[in-house]
Write a protein that binds this DNA or RNA. Structure first.
Length: 762
DNA sequence: TCCGAATTAATTTTT
DNA sequence: TTAATTCGGA
């Protein structure tokens, strides 16, 4: 049977390489797709072409995207190309696709059909518990780092049994990893990494499953291939083994998930794995102006470890890139507001504007300014709705109802709202559960005969158990997720407890719960399988809450979240050293990290279609502490002819500010005095003050560059200083004030704020 | 065991 | 800076 497309595929609207990729027949194919080169169009056209021209059955096509959003968009685009059967195409993220397969073949994969998915917070809770069981100090063994090690092992398809232990640290990891896996199994839970790792292991160890899955798809397409990690590539290899119709699309310059195990070698060396692979390069950009492309290229091309390629465009030359100096982060936010107003004044919509930043923490100031200016906005990502405590509580109840062995969720809610089950009792229950190697729930079920627990507490625990059982019966009786949630609110007295609090915070929480109930109603109406476990899976794998595009508003997000998107006007904030390129406290001097930051800048810049505004602040408060950092090296890597500097020269060193005097009226504005007013005193986008910036030579290493003078009394970023008690450490920040303080990282002591006079150069 | 006060930790980036 | 956690007194 042949599937007929609703719309004729107008292949003639594609350029040469695009068309080649779309009509490529059989065998491995790698498409290097530069930013804005019509990548998504190629993938969707290719899928449509496979179905319409080659007669491939939709359900035999698997398209893997990086985010749920991208999956949704692909589906949408496909449905406009194909009349029907779009639904049968497997479109999803690695995680959702694997979850689906694991459920379908749960017996062969050795997982419970109703497994719950643990997010990072759940995983961390589980790791902490295991650490405590072993009596390991969770300050010495940071649960996050331990979890990171476990995740990394899974990315490399290394199970606990083959985890190498060569020293004290890895020995602990191996032990914890082993126990963690047992606990997870007992809890009927899989973490994010498991979804892919478990499927790969099952496929590779089980002939039956392998035969089934390796022949299931005629064509596999992977988007954003530069951000896949080892397991993911291996899975895709396994699944395409029989037909070898594997098409991967990506851009190594946009690889920004190295920290999550992404390996650019996957795309760069694809040919090594598939020597017969066809290579297609998409280098014509349809999105941005020439100036924007040149700027982006001139930054990313400084990377050493990179395939040289140059995007070109027939688009207009465009407006200069604005490089704007702000006094501080609030001033920067005002600049964003002024920019937005100007853009709207020029007849554009708010939704044409995006504000990007390196880290979420930067969003707050922008939000405040936009709210004050009455400009509607939306924030993508950040503290997610489903991360709110009250929402997690209700979800934890639902999860325990769906899967009582889910220890992490159970422990979260056993005393929420407070029902007199204290830490001591819980500890006793945990001990017993560990001894009996069962889940906490299983222990609770027969807690009545445990004489070591006070009879009053026992009664409370028994009451909890029967309450949960009653709720579970309702689900068994066919009650839908939303109604169950309402029953939970009533019967656990959760709602009542919040009402009794009668504080604005509690009201906000109640509102969030209402929103949760609303989204559950919506889920029940829209999902094809509106079951409780389907809802829970959706929640865990769904990142940003569905945002409707109907409203005209500014969009804010991290640069990571911006990948794959485009906006006519892009405002990037925080272009200072330490911020962007970001350099955290515990970060080393890793040139690879700097290269990734540069790719990140490349991604940010190439989102812009017409106008790109880059902003840096002379002073920025971090944790409420003012920090002075030089402007980002990336700004100095831009082609001078394509940019327009506004607001003055590169950050004056702290010392030179001093020498210019605190009370004079020289041009320099002291941001900490009148940050709000300074904005209007400066020309905005029109005639800029000519920059006096000498092109600064960017040095190779992080540390070198950050040793720009910002110090007080000769103290500089990155220099080594000595302290009587803490010994020698490295300067991580300078806080002006009386007395001036310095942030110093001391090996073995962590990061400390020290009054400058107690330090000596070392 | 509970509540408010005091301390201190937190910031990459996401599925 | 804010949010979470610990502390100390009832």
């Amino acid at each position: 049977m042949r599937y007929v497309p609703a719309v004729h595929l107008s292949l003639e609207t594609l350029n040469g390489p695009q068309r080649d990729a779309v009509v490529h027949d059989k065998g491995p194919l790698v498409v290097f797709a530069g930013a804005g080169s019509g990548k998504t169009r190629v993938i969707t056209y290719r899928i449509a072409q496979l179905i319409a021209q080659q007669g491939v059955a939709p359900y035999r096509i698997l398209a893997v995207t990086f985010t749920n959003k991208a999956a949704g968009e692909m589906r949408e685009r496909l449905s406009s190309l194909l009349a029907h059967d779009v639904h049968d195409i497997w479109v999803g993220t690695f995680h959702s696709t694997c979850a689906r397969m694991l459920r379908r073949y749960h017996e062969l994969c050795g997982v419970k059909r109703d497994f719950v998915i643990y997010d990072d917070a759940d995983q961390k809770a589980m790791v902490t518990r295991v650490l405590n069981d072993f009596g390991f100090d969770d300050r010495r063994y940071d649960p996050k780092k331990v979890a990171g090690a476990i995740n990394k092992a899974k990315q490399e398809v290394v199970g606990p049994e083959s985890y190498p232990s060569n020293d004290a640290w890895t020995e602990v990891i191996k032990k914890v990893y082993t126990a963690y896996e047992e606990r997870m199994t007992r809890s009927g839970a899989l973490d994010f990494g498991d979804l892919i790792y478990r499927l790969v292991r099952s496929v590779e160890s089980n002939e039956l499953l392998k035969r089934e899955l390796a022949s299931r798809f005629d064509h596999i397409l992977v988007d954003e291939f530069q951000d896949t990690n080892r397991v993911q590539f291996r899975l895709v290899k396994d699944l395409s083994e029989q037909k070898r119709n594997l098409c991967v699309v990506g851009d190594d310059d946009q690889s920004i998930y190295r920290w999550r195990g992404a390996d650019r070698r996957n795309i760069l060396d694809f040919r090594r794995e598939y020597p017969d692979a066809t290579i297609i390069k998409l280098e014509q950009n349809y999105r941005s102006t020439k100036k924007i492309l040149r700027a982006a290229h001139s930054v990313v091309s400084r990377n050493v470890d990179r395939e040289e390629k140059t995007l070109w465009t027939e688009n207009a030359e465009g407006a200069p890139i604005l490089v704007v100096r702000s006094a501080d982060e609030r001033d920067e936010a005002h600049l964003a507001v002024a920019t937005a107003r100007e853009v709207v004044h020029a007849g554009r919509k708010l939704s044409d504007i995006a504000i990007f930043y390196r880290i979420h923490a930067q969003s707050r100031v922008f939000e405040e300014a936009l709210r004050a200016a009455n400009l509607p906005y939306q924030v993508i990502g950040g503290t997610r709705f489903y991360d709110r405590a009250e929402v997690k509580d209700i979800l934890a109840y639902l999860r325990v109802i769906s899967n009582p062995d889910d220890d992490v969720s159970l422990l979260r809610i056993v005393n929420v709202p407070t029902r007199g089950i204290g830490k001591t009792s819980i500890d006793r229950v945990l001990d017993r559960a560990a001894k009996e190697a069962t889940s906490v729930w299983a222990t609770l079920e027969h807690i009545g005969d445990d004489a070591s627990i006070a009879s009053g507490t026992r009664k409370k625990l028994i009451g909890f158990v029967s309450m949960m059982n009653a709720l579970r019966d309702k689900v068994a009786g066919g009650m839908g997720p939303a109604e169950v949630a309402r029953a939970i609110l009533e019967e656990t007295a959760y709602q009542k407890a919040l009402r009794d609090e009668d504080t604005p915070e509690a009201d906000a929480r109640l509102e969030n719960i209402q929103e949760l109930l609303g989204s559950m109603d919506e889920f029940e109406n829209e999902a094809e399988t509106p079951t409780l476990s389907a809802f829970l899976e959706n929640v865990t794998l769904q990142t940003n809450t569905a945002n409707d595009d109907s409203e005209d508003r500014i969009t804010m997000m991290t640069v990571h979240a911006a990948k794959g998107l485009e906006f006519p006007v892009v405002f990037v904030g925080g272009l200072e050293e330490q911020m962007f390129p970001y350099h955290g406290y515990d970060a080393g001097d890793d040139p690879d990290e700097l290269e990734e930051e540069r790719r990140l800048a490349y991604v940010a810049f190439t989102r812009a279609r017409e106008k790109l505004i880059l902003s840096w602040a002379a002073l920025r408060r971090v944790f409420g502490q003012p920090r002075i950092n030089p402007r980002s090296r990336f700004l100095d890597e831009l082609p001078r002819a394509d940019i327009e500097e506004i607001g003055g020269a590169p950050s004056p060193s702290y010392a030179s500010q001093r020498s210019s005097g605190w009370d004079d009226n020289s041009g320099y504005q002291r941001p900490w005095q009148h940050p709000q007013r300074s904005r209007s005193e400066r020309p905005m986008m029109g005639t800029p003050r000519t920059s006096t910036t000498p092109a600064r030579k960017s040095s190779e290493s992080y540390i070198d560059r950050s040793e720009v003078e910002v110090g007080e009394d000769g103290i500089r970023m990155g220099m080594r200083v000595a302290h009587a008690k803490y010994g020698v450490g490295e300067v991580r920040g300078v806080t002006p004030g009386v007395p001036p303080k310095v942030t110093v990282s001391f090996p073995g002591w962590g990061t400390k704020q020290i009054v400058a006079s107690f330090l000596e150069p070392a």
